[in-house]
Every structure is written in structure tokens, then in C-alpha cells.
Design a protein around this nucleic acid. Sequence first.
DNA 1: TTGCGAACATTACAATAGGTAGTGTGAGGT
DNA 2: ACCTCACACTACCTATTGTAATGTTCGCAA
Lengths: 137, 137
Amino acid sequence: MKIHSFKTNESGLNRFFGPLEAKIMHILWNGPEMAIKDVQARLVKEQAINFNTVMTVMNRLVDKGVLRKRAEGRVSLFQPTQSLEQFLETQSKELTNDLLEEFGPLVVNHMLDALEEADPALIEQLEQKIQALKKER
Amino acid sequence: MKIHSFKTNESGLNRFFGPLEAKIMHILWNGPEMAIKDVQARLVKEQAINFNTVMTVMNRLVDKGVLRKRAEGRVSLFQPTQSLEQFLETQSKELTNDLLEEFGPLVVNHMLDALEEADPALIEQLEQKIQALKKER
DNA sequence: TTGCGAACATTACAATAGGTAGTGTGAGGT
DNA sequence: ACCTCACACTACCTATTGTAATGTTCGCAA
């Protein structure tokens, strides 16, 4: 399995995951390899939550391929299959390609409209890359 | 209601809609204001489909705000609330903004990587817009 | 005037995704 | 021999989407 949808009405990890899934991924990305009860312990600080609930969701994340599970004696230890950086890199690349494929020039315009108002540094970066590209040809 | 998710594993209208929803929107975007039975007639050319099924889905599309329903005597006529162009414009803009918000510079790089392999004309367009932007300042 | 048929409304069921949690099982330590 | 803890299995709930049966209404024709 993989990530199939990007939610426009959410933010951060909630764009890729359900709310509990997102919290769990957040914990695993900001800490070491962990057992279920470790994750649960961190979640409980916010909100009471059943051990089995955490287990079920974590196992589903394993099925989706975003967590890896490893037996260490009697307990299972979990860790993300990708670093957060890799994950964001992968997802943003896939999304960007999808967008360009689907919308082509429209996206370029929107991009610039957005950059115009937002971030002069990004425009600089863009121009640098374009110049670099041109020289290569 | 609105569109809340963009599916990375689909293509075209299926990125925004379920498969039947997408077919229905396709028909309404490529024809005049229509009654349910007109839509059904076109769908049936491909695949037998129950009138009520079409009705239910079309009414849901009205609830979502992507179709408008208008009573004309005994029948209801349906038509998209936006043209396909407007819809794609809106969606691609929203997605582009979301992406930049969420990933910032990562997206700019992916964009250029993609453009590099894909389309020299888009790069030209990009550069034009950047020059235009610079002059404004 | 009555009643049929067409269009719409209401209701419901299946599948999938995600959140929640009860019950079952097995292995280790006491 | 047994108890506990971690894990497995199963199930139920909500939402979304596809599917369709049943119920209602109203104009027109006999």
C-alpha cells in the first residue's frame, strides 16, 4: 500500500494520514524506534487512548508500508521506513509531477502568482536554476 | 461542501471524484444542461446503470456544490456550477498554493527537475514571467 | 374522475478507510 | 501450574461512494 490522497482541507501530516495516524507518525519521526506502549504513553499525555487502538493503527501503517516492524524478543519495535525528510521529498515530488502532468502551464502561472506575493528568495532560486538550465543546452 | 482530496493514484477527473461521479461530470461538462435521464442515457451507452443510481450521485454532486439543480416543470435540469476551465483553474491554484505552503522550496526544485525533462516552452514561459516580475519592482 | 406512468424523494445496503476497542492466545517469569 | 503482558483477531462506528428498491406526487389520458 501507499499514500493515495492529499487532503486540501488539512495541514501538515494530516494531509497524508488520518488524525491518529498522523500523531503516531509524528511521534515515530521525532524519536527512536519504539514499541507500541511507548507510542501509547506519549499519546496518552494528550488524550486517553486504548493500547489496542494504537496497535491496530500502527499495524495498518505497517501494511501501508510507512512503518517497519521488527521483533525484539517479545515486543515489536516500530520505525518509519523513510525519514521525514525522505517522505516529504518523495511526496512533494510525486505531487509536483502529478500537478504538472495534469495541469501543465496552469500550475506554472499559479506558482508564480503565489511566489510573487510570498517569497522573493524563492524567485531568486528559480531564476538561478533557469540560468543553469539554459547554460547546459 | 467542496473537493477535499486529490488522488495521486488516479488521473483526470478521477483525481477529484469517484469513478461514477467523474463520468457524470464529464458528461455535464461536455454537453448542455441536462436532466437525469439524459445523463443516464449517455452512461448506458457504456454500461447498464440504474436511473436511481444516477439520480443519487447527481444529487450528491449538488450537495457538494459542483452541480446546480434547476426545476423546469416536472423535471430537474443539472449543470456544473463552474466551467471545466474554471474548475481546473480553481483546483490547480488551490493545490499549487497548498503545495508551496506545505513544502516551499522543495516544490520549486521538483518543478524545475520536472520541467527540465519535460517542456522547454514552459521554461520559456517561466522566465518571461520572472522578468516581468522583476521589472515591476 | 380516476388512475397510470414518469420523475423525484426516501431509505438502505455494500465496500473501503480510519478510529475505537473487546476478546482470544501464547510465552515467560514466578 | 498459573498469571500477566504483548500481540493477534475480530468487530463495530462514521464517512464516502456506488448501487438500487420502495414510496410519493402530479399531470395527462381514457
